Amino acid sequence: MGFKENQLLTNSEPHRKIVSVPKKPALSESGVLDSFIDVEMEDDVFYNDQVNVDRQLSYEEARKEVKTLCEIRKSYFKKAALEYRSKRYGVAAYLSDVGHNLSDKIKEANIIASRYIFNNRNKNNSCMLMDLHGLHVKEALLFVKERILFLKNVKRRSEDPPKGFLKIITGSGRHSSTGISKVKKALEIFLKKNNFSYRKLTDGTLELKI
């Protein structure tokens, strides 16, 4: 039984137990990542709103740490595979564990990067306008959910709550490889699933009634 790069060895009995690393979720027929649209209104919002975004960051700069960590993790998995083929199972198990442990750091770096990207895009916008350009699908949905919960809370507690509709810019996807905006499609599924009334203003803009 061979060890592949997308597999991890467990610490116990490394020569016997191999655990597959989750692969990237497959695209549904609509072109939306199925696992990424599974964001419920009841889920915890895990973004830290206190991330310092005083300096301007490009998309590439914000995602740079994530890219670096992913490359490091990949290198550990490759080394683990080579060690396993050489029957050095203990070393292979150690290397694969190190690679696996980087996943939490990658997740944290992505959260920070997404907050930089979102806040820099929206720093001059009112609370009734959101620009989701530069965000991954799940990140975009969580920011929308966060804003909806915030506006509902303000509406409930304030004597003079924001009026009108929440305008959400998703982009039309013209610059994507498929020509389809995954964020837009996922957002529409999310809004329908949670019974929100909305309308399309343009190919890349939705207007939501809070």
Rank of each mutant, 00 (worst) to 15 (best):
I210W: 07
K182R: 14
K182F: 02
K145S: 09
D97E: 12
R115S: 09
I18K: 06
Y116W: 15
K23M: 08
Y89C: 06
V183G: 00
K87N: 11
I169F: 02
N153T: 06
L9K: 08
I180T: 12
K185V: 10
V45I: 13
F118I: 07
L135Y: 00
Y89M: 08
A80V: 02
E207I: 15
S30M: 14
V98W: 00
K209P: 08
E83T: 07
H15E: 14
R63H: 13
I169W: 00
R115K: 15
P14W: 01
Y198S: 09
S58W: 11
L82P: 03
A26L: 14
F36E: 07
K192D: 14
N124W: 06
L95T: 00
L201K: 08
N195T: 12
N48G: 12
G179V: 09
S114K: 00
S181R: 03
K209Q: 12
N11F: 15
E65R: 07
H136C: 03
A109T: 03
R85V: 05
S58Y: 07
E29R: 13
V154L: 14
R156D: 14
M1N: 08
K105S: 10
H100F: 13
S75K: 11
R115I: 13
K138I: 12
E159I: 11
L149R: 12
G90I: 14
L135W: 00
N101P: 04
T202A: 12
Q7M: 07
S28H: 09
K200I: 11
I106C: 03
E71T: 12
K78L: 11
M130C: 03
N124D: 10
E5W: 05
R88V: 09
K67V: 11
N52V: 11
D34T: 07
N194D: 06
A186D: 02
Y76D: 02
E108Y: 09
D44P: 04
M1F: 07
K185T: 12
K185P: 04
I210T: 10
K209T: 08
I112Y: 04
T178G: 01
S181W: 03
E159P: 03
F3H: 02
R174Q: 12
L151W: 03
R16L: 08
R147T: 05
C127P: 02
K184C: 08
S181P: 09
V154Q: 15
N110L: 07
K78H: 10
V39K: 00
D97K: 10
I148E: 02
E61C: 15
R115D: 08
K107D: 10
